[in-house]
Design a protein around this nucleic acid. Sequence first.
DNA 1: GTATAAATGTAAATAAGTTTACATTTATAC
DNA 2: GTATAAATGTAAACTTATTTACATTTATAC
Lengths: 226, 226
Amino acid sequence: MTAKHHHEINGSLSADCMTLLEPLLSIRHYADGELIFARGEYKAGLCIVLEGSVKVGNYGTDGRYFLSKVLKPNESFGEFTIFSKLPRTHTAEACGESKVAYVSPGKLKKAIMNQPEIALQLLQSLSTRLHMSLEVMDDIKRLPVAVRIAKLLHELNREAGGLDVRSLSQEELASQLGVSRMVVSSSLKELNQLGLINKAYRSIQIPNTQKLLAWIKERQQIKDLL
Amino acid sequence: MTAKHHHEINGSLSADCMTLLEPLLSIRHYADGELIFARGEYKAGLCIVLEGSVKVGNYGTDGRYFLSKVLKPNESFGEFTIFSKLPRTHTAEACGESKVAYVSPGKLKKAIMNQPEIALQLLQSLSTRLHMSLEVMDDIKRLPVAVRIAKLLHELNREAGGLDVRSLSQEELASQLGVSRMVVSSSLKELNQLGLINKAYRSIQIPNTQKLLAWIKERQQIKDLL
DNA sequence: GTATAAATGTAAATAAGTTTACATTTATAC
DNA sequence: GTATAAATGTAAACTTATTTACATTTATAC
């Protein structure tokens, strides 16, 4: 991919967007594990993670937990409660001490009418996230778990800014991918033996990002993009 | 779900939105199977299906085809090429004689700045589609194929306006769900034996929508929304 | 009508991932 | 340091879906 065409794929809100939204925000603090929104609630509003993280997922009738995504600062959720009048379909909980901003539907819509740049920013975030979501769905359909784990690790590594992925349990990886912990364990063993990762207790290092990426690309099943 | 809260979940563009966008559209006709955009292309632009349908998917390096979605009139695609400057990640092909509208990035952005209502409409479409996509991903993680087929049939049936789903091969269903034709065949057999569908050659009828929905809800694994 | 192509049915062998169960390692609280 | 909890390793039994292979049914072109 040429430099000209290289763009970070990231669904979080840009600094510009945060500046534009700042006057609209009501800020709330949450303790670790505290409920932010529950599945089924009709209270609409855009939420933006400012500090800490937010776990979005659902509890099955049998008590099992299905994780959808762990949101980090500048990531938003709940757009559809504003623009599509749908109820909350996922439960959001603070993951560690967290600071979350809230924007009411009325305020946001009014702001968009006055400052359409806000809309452009939100459109960027939503279109990127839709795109990422569709890509992940494609991956689920065609890639074995080991490759999907490799992609997730690479992604987490990139987001964290090239650092090693500390304090990340295999349980969490499994939850994030929607697979069992056991298959994560054996896949990581495989990646480790190939020298693509260095695994330790609650920690995975990627010694060579390029090498990992090359390994993934070989297994993508579809033609590479430029 | 109360009437007050009932909303059709649908990612397509509203009639209002189509009216707003009308002056911006360049229209093109495509023959059956004709290429609209190929994976990797950088030509940005929003596309809206006006007539016929558009198949969005990708061809694997081994020739296998992975279908993402079949788009029907008033459904759009390619937003992320405008708002996120990403290349086309999927190949779009006409599926039968089709009429597709095209909006250039410049025109669309300018129109949004002048008429922010357009942005609200696009935000609705995108947030709904993101939401639907995340729901499907949840389903993939926790539901057996038979239930996912039932949900897809119910959805197709609803979209088609309560009619039977004609001219729908099991191959297409399999492609859409990303599973093999054989498991679709046996799942349909199961649904048929339960009296939830009537299947025939290239056609599936749903005799009782409520009954099918009830069967699905029993198997959703998570608490029903209201 | 008949031949052909498309779609569907079915079943055995295989593969991938889950579940269950328990051992082992590592961190942390006291 | 030691006890305890959390995380990880591993393997067998099981489940689900794929692959391969072929038979059968249905539509369509001639």
